[in-house]
Design a protein around this nucleic acid. Sequence first.
DNA 1: TTCGCTTTTTAACATATGTAAAGTTTTTTG
DNA 2: CAAAAAACTTTACATATGTTAAAAAGCGAA
Lengths: 188, 188
Amino acid sequence: MMNQTKNRLKSIHDVSDEAIATFLQLGEIKEYEKNKQLFSPEKRHHYLYVIEKGAVRAYSYYKGKQVTFWLGMEGDFVFPYRTFVYDQPSYETVELLEDCMLNAFLIKDLRHLMDHNFEWSVWGRKFMEKELVAMEERFISYQFKTAKERYDQLINEKPEIFNRIQLQHIASYLGITQVSLSRIRGNY
Amino acid sequence: MMNQTKNRLKSIHDVSDEAIATFLQLGEIKEYEKNKQLFSPEKRHHYLYVIEKGAVRAYSYYKGKQVTFWLGMEGDFVFPYRTFVYDQPSYETVELLEDCMLNAFLIKDLRHLMDHNFEWSVWGRKFMEKELVAMEERFISYQFKTAKERYDQLINEKPEIFNRIQLQHIASYLGITQVSLSRIRGNY
DNA sequence: TTCGCTTTTTAACATATGTAAAGTTTTTTG
DNA sequence: CAAAAAACTTTACATATGTTAAAAAGCGAA
């Protein structure tokens, strides 16, 4: 019952079955209900999660408003980059949008694995590389594109999001207000 | 005369002097004049450069206009992420804004090093992690902030950019037109 | 099913940023 | 140095997106 995790690990960079087993042994399945906050700002966090089932959002506050900057579903890794990389408290809240089954790993276990095991060290680099390219693509779509274009791209690339996640969160994720998203969807 | 490269390598993650020597042996100093194109879209590229001296911009075309999405100066690594990670042609042009001294490395040499040498494998992960956090911060500043706020942030964090790089490129880098940047600077 | 709460849409107006073109300043080059 | 080119600013107007508030639609619990 850890298929999402295993599939995702292999899809990033193929590693041996023994290595996979070593990694999976570090994980612990946890189930949480909708609305639980997985991470909250200013606190130290110790876990990285892989979503086996469910949907999740990360947001922080800017000028008194929540801004959703990340949405995750099955197979996604949930971890505040800043906490993982610099071991510093994160500024974001991560909140469950559905009841979730999560595979929880201690960040220090994973860091230890990637600092001492050659296979996982290479895997870790490939993982970060792919996160980086994905982040750059999202960044470029912000710098280059209008809200309408970003909306069209999202609905083409991840249509399932629109079935599972509230439009207010999608609007924020697209960097616009809910009113603007309604306008775009209504073809004004 | 490879101080920028060496300093930057060590600042990302400390590695042994022998490892540094191994890395530096792979590099070759090249000098190019202002306006040279280091990378052009649709072509295969084989080099990663570290800027020893000079300034550089990366841009691509969107709706017939150049959009500058990256500016680099001394100590920065110049390499199209997509080419490095997926070995695919990049969509961007990289152009020298000043006469430059560059430390050139074959991407395949670096990839080989990071895939086979444990110390460099860990270094590679840390490097990608830090690029990722920096990219996320830039992304978030786009999603959250107004043009004026992004301008203020840039002039605080990298004031030297304004002495060395044309305002038209800075405007594009900030995701706005040159006219808007003029307005911001003139306090309209 | 109905009532109450949450989410989404619509409307009216405000503001930030874009576009095009002209004018000014700075830089390059013969 | 002078002319030409490039970079930058300003103006007038257009458009996209934000803000606030109200209406409509959807959803969940008694």
